[in-house]
C-alpha cells in the first residue's frame, strides 16, 4: 500500500506542481507511484520516471483522457486508488475539479490544499482565506489530498529513468459529458503558479489598455502577470490571472503589487511570497502591511521609471 501521486501535465510536459506534490509525498515515508493519464503523453510518463523518489509510473494513454474530464479521470483514479493509502494531487484547477470526485467514490473526505504534513494522518491547511491555519487529522482509511505547490520544495529529476513505467488500460468513456472546445492563452510568459517574479496589477491601473504597462514590465523582468479580483471584475484581465483566496495561490521570490489596495482575499493569495513590493498612491492601503518595500507614488510615473532603470 503505497502513495499515488497524480501528475499535472498538458500531454507534452510534466508541470512543476507535480514535483512539489512528489516532494510532499516523500514526507509520508512510503513507496511513491505517479499516475500519468492523458493522450499521446508518453513524453510525460518518461519525465515522471526520472523524478527522484518515484519508484513506479502508471501510464494510461487514451483519447478518453485527452481533455482531463473529471468524470473519466476520476473513475480511473478511483479504480487504481483501492491499492493505495494516500492519493495526492497538486491543488491545480484541474485536480480541484477531479479529486473530490475520487474521494466521494471512495467514501472518504478530501483534505484540500494542504501546506504542511504534521504526521502520517495529520495535515495543516489554511482556512478563512489564510487568516487561520487548521491542523486536521484524517480518520479515513484512504487519505485523499490536494497539495498547495508553493508550500513544498520541488522534487529533483535524476539523469536517467529510475522508475518502471507500467501501462494501464483506459476505462470505457463516460457518456455523461462531451468536450466542446478550449480557449487557452498562448503566452511566452512564465505561468503564475511557478514564476520566480510576479507583477500584479489592480484597480489602480484603470483600464485594460493601461494594464499593458504591467505586461511590459513583466516581460522586461521575465515575470508572470497577475491581478487582483478588482482588476478582473473591472474586465482588465481574464480571471485566470487572479491572485487570491479564490484564484491562484502564489509564493514567488519577488511579488510586485501595483495599484492593488490589498483586500484580505488578495493577501491570502500572495502573502507567502519571499519579497513583496507594494506600489500605491494611497499610503493607507492595507497592501503596505505585508510589503517588505513600500513606495507611495503614482504608478503611471513609477512603472516607466522602473522600465528605464531596471536591466
Amino acid at each position: 500500500m503505497a502513495i499515488l501521486v497524480t501528475a499535472e501535465h498538458d500531454n507534452h510536459t510534466l508541470k512543476q506542481s507535480t514535483l512539489n506534490t512528489v516532494s510532499a509525498s516523500t514526507q509520508l515515508n512510503d513507496e511513491i507511484h505517479v499516475l500519468v493519464a492523458g493522450f499521446n503523453c508518453q513524453a510525460v510518463a518518461e519525465q515522471a520516471a526520472k523524478i527522484t523518489g518515484v519508484s513506479k509510473v502508471l501510464y494510461a494513454d487514451s483519447s478518453v483522457y485527452e481533455h482531463q474530464l473529471a468524470e473519466n479521470i476520476a473513475a480511473l483514479i478511483t479504480e487504481l486508488g483501492n491499492d493505495y493509502y494516500y492519493i495526492l494531487a497538486p491543488a491545480t484547477s484541474n485536480y480541484k475539479n477531479i479529486l473530490p470526485r475520487v474521494a466521494a467514490k471512495l467514501d472518504v473526505t478530501q483534505l484540500s490544499d494542504i501546506t504542511a504534513i504534521v504526521a502520517n494522518d495529520t495535515f495543516e491547511r489554511p482556512i478563512y482565506a489564510g487568516n487561520a491555519i487548521a491542523t486536521v487529522k484524517s480518520l479515513d482509511p484512504v487519505k485523499v489530498i490536494t497539495v498547495r505547490s508553493s508550500a513544498f520544495e520541488e522534487a529533483a529529476f535524476s539523469d536517467s529513468q529510475n522508475a518502471e513505467i507500467i501501462a494501464v488500460n483506459a476505462l470505457p468513456e463516460t457518456n455523461l459529458v462531451a468536450f466542446v472546445s478550449e480557449q487557452v492563452e498562448q503566452s511566452d510568459r512564465p505561468e503564475l503558479s511557478n514564476a520566480n517574479i510576479i507583477i500584479s496589477g489592480g484597480r489602480g491601473l484603470g483600464s485594460s489598455e493601461n494594464f499593458a504597462l504591467i505586461e511590459q514590465l513583466a516581460d522586461q523582468l521575465g515575470a508572470a502577470v497577475g491581478a487582483s479580483r478588482a482588476a478582473v471584475d473591472s474586465g482588465f484581465v481574464p480571471n485566470d490571472k487572479q491572485v487570491g483566496q479564490t484564484g491562484k495561490i502564489v509564493a514567488p521570490q519577488l511579488y510586485i503589487a501595483v495599484g492593488i489596495s490589498g483586500a484580505i482575499q488578495h493577501l491570502a493569495g500572495m502573502k507567502d511570497s519571499k519579497t513583496i513590493v507594494a506600489i500605491n498612491k494611497d499610503e493607507e492601503a492595507p497592501i503596505f502591511s505585508v510589503a517588505d518595500y513600500g513606495l507611495v507614488a503614482d504608478l503611471f510615473e513609477v512603472i516607466p521609471e522602473l522600465r528605464e532603470k531596471l536591466p
Binding site: 487568516n131 480518520l139 479515513d140 518595500y293
Partner: peptide, 21 residues
C-alpha cells in the same frame, strides 16, 4: 476528520517604506 487545532498564520516582519524608484 478531526480538527486538532487552529492557529494564527505566521506574521510577516514589518517592512520599510522607500522614497524613490
Amino acid at each position: 476528520t478531526q480538527l486538532t487545532s487552529v492557529a494564527e498564520p505566521a506574521k510577516r516582519e514589518q517592512g520599510v517604506m522607500v522614497n524613490s524608484v
